[in-house]
Design a protein around this nucleic acid. Structure first.
Length: 259
DNA sequence: ATGGCATTTAAAAAATGA
């Protein structure tokens, strides 16, 4: 079973890219972030015609997350919105059950400029995520926490770490929070299979960053211990970042075997 | 050290991203 995550950076503005990638990659499940569209403007029809059912949580202009699954699967949403702050209106979290797996699709706040209120929001959100994750990992159900974490976990995950030291994605606090999350028992799928490789999932639009491979790794797959012997493959669809009118992120995917 | 690009909203320029 192939499961992917992709920060699309505008689900309508980049619909041709999304459809091209779905058609080529054929993931069984795809988690999308940064829809940048209200729920009523989600391109449900086009995605259905591409072979996918979907659940989504949109928001006007910003954020927005969705989970797609091939029609042969039963896709059931089992919650949206990260608990812990009733004031938080941003659409950054949705979870669904597919093929006996609990899939969590998240878009962690970026946090720039840092320090500041946006960085504080990021850290509060991260804290709430870790609280939620702690209860999820106790479940009997296998769980996948995937999406755009807006965190560069280690120096190996940036082409030039010193260039990112003043950026919220590389600040010590979110990196520490990510380490605390892993300590609960989650496995970073890319690092599990590629412990020493420089692997990026994001290249900015400036300075020809993609062609220079000046990227960072911020989109992650975290697996509950149930997947210990089931993880077969974890890769980045790097070439998608080279397409016309593409997102600044590339899709990431894993292949897992049936139990 | 700055600015480089690209989106959405809405009708020009601002906000956001990372």
């Amino acid at each position: 079973m192939k499961i992917a995550t992709y920060n699309v950076n505008g689900v309508n503005g980049r619909l041709p890219v999304l459809l091209r990638w779905l058609s080529e990659s054929q993931p069984d499940v795809a988690c999308l972030q940064e829809l940048k569209a209200p729920s009523e403007k989600f391109p449900e029809q086009a995605i259905f015609e591409a072979g996918y059912a979907a659940v989504w949580h949109g928001q006007k202009s910003w954020n927005g997350v969705a989970i797609l699954a091939k029609k042969k699967y039963a896709l059931t949403e089992v919650g949206r919105g990260l608990p812990g702050d009733p004031e938080d209106e941003q659409s950054r979290y949705i979870q669904a059950k597919v093929n006996g797996i609990l899939i969590v699709c998240l878009y962690l706040p970026n946090g720039n400029p840092a320090p500041g209120p946006k960085f504080d929001y990021k850290m509060e959100w991260f804290k709430r995520l870790n609280t939620k994750a702690k209860s999820l990992i106790k479940l009997k159900t296998p769980v996948i926490l995937t999406g755009d974490y807006n965190v560069v976990p280690t120096e190996l995950d940036a082409y030039k770490p010193e260039r990112w030291v003043n950026d919220a994605v590389f600040f010590p606090e979110p990196r520490a929070a990510y380490r605390r999350l892993l300590k609960q028992g989650w496995v970073d799928a890319i690092r599990q299979l590629h412990p020493d490789e420089k692997i990026f999932t994001y290249w900015d639009y400036f300075r020809n960053a993609f062609n220079r491979d000046a990227g960072i790794r911020m989109d992650h797959f975290l697996l509950s211990p149930h997947f210990k012997d089931r993880l077969k493959c974890a890769e980045v669809d790097r070439h998608v970042r080279g397409w016309e009118k593409t997102s600044d992120h590339a899709p990431v995917w894993i292949e897992i075997s049936e139990k």
